[in-house]
């Protein structure tokens, strides 16, 4: 057994997992503030990356201008989605809202494809491709940057949900009608959560765009993000981070063991197994809230 190789797989897996956590944090943000699982988070991530590219490549502006500007635009887009598509659905059965987020996903993918085409572009974040040596382990620098961003967002949102505004958003996700009854503007709260999730999508899109290039496949990150979010518990920020690390390690170490037997491609099988088993065995995930039933 090659222990250095195994620990390298583990650490790189954990780092990749934290990049999945970025997607999951966006999902959790919206779920925690409005109890809606957002199936468009992958497409939002991709759109965020394209908007950054529009400024940095098409207009030639530096990234330190392009990224914050894209964050502002995506925040407005997120708020706009709530205003146009979701506001009239408030209080309707969750399945209709779910279908709406799916519609938004398809719409965003179609729109980006029409505007930017299908070819892959790179972000050129300026992070070196040379490996980073930790002892004898080889680590990817962009993954380290991405993991750091994930941790920073995690700490930031953990604090945010303890503020007055954060408490209000959690209240909305618990009970729309009760929130209205005490004067909370449910619509504005949900809009804000979509805005914030869209800003997270910009960060996610830039990191993942640097890792694998910006193209339509970025939207498929939804599947990994959703798996992480479900495993962690849909409304738990802590869960998004812990589950990201777990899934990342399972995926990289597990694939190393399984690939020789199945001839490759076992990564996706592991992700699918995690998602299915979580829903079967522990539907509220590792840290998610239960629906409280008092007798």
């Amino acid at each position: 057994m090659d222990w250095i190789f195994l620990s390298e797989l583990t650490v790189n897996g954990a780092l990749t997992g934290l990049l999945y956590s970025l997607v999951a944090i966006g999902l959790v943000l919206i779920y925690k503030s409005s109890a809606v699982p957002n199936l468009a988070q992958g497409a939002l991530t991709m759109t965020g990356a394209y908007v950054v590219l529009a400024f940095s490549h098409n207009l030639g502006w530096p990234l330190w201008v392009a990224i914050p500007l894209a964050a502002v635009i995506m925040f407005l887009l997120g708020m706009g989605i709530e205003r146009v598509a979701l506001r009239r659905l408030a209080g309707r059965p969750i399945v209709m809202i779910l279908m709406m987020t799916m519609g938004i996903d398809i719409f965003l993918r179609g729109t980006t494809l029409a505007i930017w085409g299908g070819s892959s572009r790179s972000v050129n974040l300026g992070v070196s491709y040379d490996p980073f040596f930790l002892g004898d382990m080889l680590l990817s620098r962009i993954h380290i940057v991405g993991a750091a961003v994930a941790i920073a967002l995690f700490v930031g949102f953990l604090l945010f949900f303890r503020t007055r505004l954060g408490i209000r958003l959690r209240a909305i996700s618990d009970d729309y009608l009760a929130s209205w009854s005490i004067g909370i503007s449910v619509e504005r709260g949900v809009g804000l959560s979509w805005g914030l999730a869209s800003v997270v999508a910009v960060a996610t899109g830039v990191i993942w765009g640097e890792v694998q290039g910006v193209d339509q496949s970025l939207s498929v990150l939804l599947l990994k993000g959703l798996t992480v979010a479900v495993l962690g518990g849909l409304d738990s920020i802590v869960g998004a981070i812990v589950a990201g690390i777990i899934l990342g390690i399972l995926e990289s170490v597990g694939a190393d063991f399984l690939d020789p037997f199945v001839g490759g491609g076992s990564r996706d099988l592991i992700v699918a197994a995690v998602l299915i088993l979580t829903v079967m065995i522990r539907p509220h995930g590792l840290f998610g809230r239960h629906d409280i039933e008092r007798v």
Partner: peptide, 30 residues
């Protein structure tokens, strides 16, 4: 509705409907 609350009308809806996953302290703060 939220502006009526600001005017000074508050409605305690049927069935209590506290925010289950918040603490009582957070319920008051919200």
């Amino acid at each position: 509705p939220q502006d009526r609350v600001a005017l000074g009308i508050c409605h305690v809806i049927e069935g209590r409907r506290v925010f289950d996953h918040l603490t009582p302290d957070e319920n008051l703060e919200a």
